[in-house]
Nucleic acid binder design. Structure first.
Lengths: 201, 201
DNA sequence: ACACTTTCGGCACACGGTGACTCGAAATCC
DNA sequence: GGATTTCGAGTCACCGTGTGCCGAAAGTGT
């Protein structure tokens, strides 16, 4: 996640003061905190550097946008919150995943970060590339579907299957509707049925 | 769409210079043009006023954010592009609607405006209220489902049905995937099957 | 021990957008 | 004609951005 024209090739690296892990962690934490305290819109590079007790230059040296910082800061949390335990029963697994997904998108700070980033991606190609390089939602859904149903028996490209599974909940929350009204188990049933019906054609 | 503390109550309105329709149209057009020319991020209130040949104060008098301007400027286009003709066959109708939806979201300037606004809504409550007050996607989908399937026979609240129909395509495009790979007719079939299967329970 | 390289914090700067203010002129109703 | 409201134009303080420069710190290799 080195945004500037960093050169970490061993061939050209000739020592120098090592990067301060303390400063790095402070910046990431400050970004995380600021997101929940003042929201994404009011978040600034200046504010992050001040909250982290770090020079603004130090921030710009490693990240060029606040989106990059937030992406790195929330990536680990996102991955963890969207990880699922496999019970063996596909329906249970998928329903559990959808529940975790809704919780993530609607209530988790990391989810708020993801929504903010995906929002920016709609009108900032740099952020769009960031997300397309590593999309926590798509990745987690892929894993769950593979493990729950087996990757070889899918009648549809895996990516399209993820859209079928995630789509409804995704739209529901992104469009600002009340997540309580979602029924993950019902949606998981629909998903399985769709795949089965597509298989027999 | 009077953002400032406008007072249009007849009881308090005592004449005055009428609002210039020319200035209003010029501002809305300028916003539309700027969106496709420089993108949402580079769009500014200053730029809009200059392009419209209008004082910046005149812009601020009627709209407080660029989101409000863009919302008003693209609302008509969005409604028109998402309107569908009814053929009588539910599957045809829904498939045609999904095709129009994908075209709107992925290729239309009004769709770009909508994505930008929905993005802003993820971290700006003012924009979120704007969209929840009148959501072109939700509204158009509601109409199509009602006309194609009849509003009384739905086994699911209408809002949730719209999420089932729209969701997959919505996620696909918002997450930056290639719209060509979407198969509207297939998705329409899935949707109808889901509703039928839910009904028989 | 020494030179070299890179990061660090702190300060300063130009640039551009924001949102509010003032002013005089124009347009409409009573 | 008086009251009211919008219009264009200009001005202003404020803030975030991104860059540049400085000296100090903390590592590398010889």
């Amino acid at each position: 996640m080195y945004s500037r024209g960093m050169n970490m090739d061993k061939a050209h690296y000739h020592g120098g003061r090592p990067r301060s892990e303390q400063a790095r962690a402070a910046i990431l934490n400050a970004a995380d905190d600021l997101l929940v305290e003042v929201g994404y819109a009011a978040m600034t590079m200046k504010g992050i550097s001040e909250k982290a007790g770090v020079s603004r230059q130090t921030v710009y040296r490693w990240w060029s946008h606040k989106a990059e910082i937030l992406f790195e800061a929330s990536a680990a949390d996102a991955e963890e919150e969207l990880a699922t335990s496999l019970t063996g029963d596909p329906l249970d697994d998928l329903a559990a995943y959808l529940e975790a997904l809704v919780r993530f998108l609607a209530h988790s700070p990391a989810g708020a970060a993801y929504r903010a980033l995906l929002g920016e991606a709609q009108h900032d190609s740099a952020v769009a590339e960031l997300l397309s390089a590593k999309d926590p939602l798509g990745d987690s859904a892929r894993v769950v579907i593979e493990r729950a149903l087996g990757k070889d028996t899918l009648p549809v490209p895996l990516d399209q299957a993820t859209a079928l599974l995630i789509g409804p909940s995704f739209f529901w929350i992104l469009s600002g509707r009340d997540p309580v009204q979602l029924v993950p188990r019902q949606l998981a049933e629909d998903f399985i049925r769709d795949l089965q019906s597509r298989q027999s054609r």
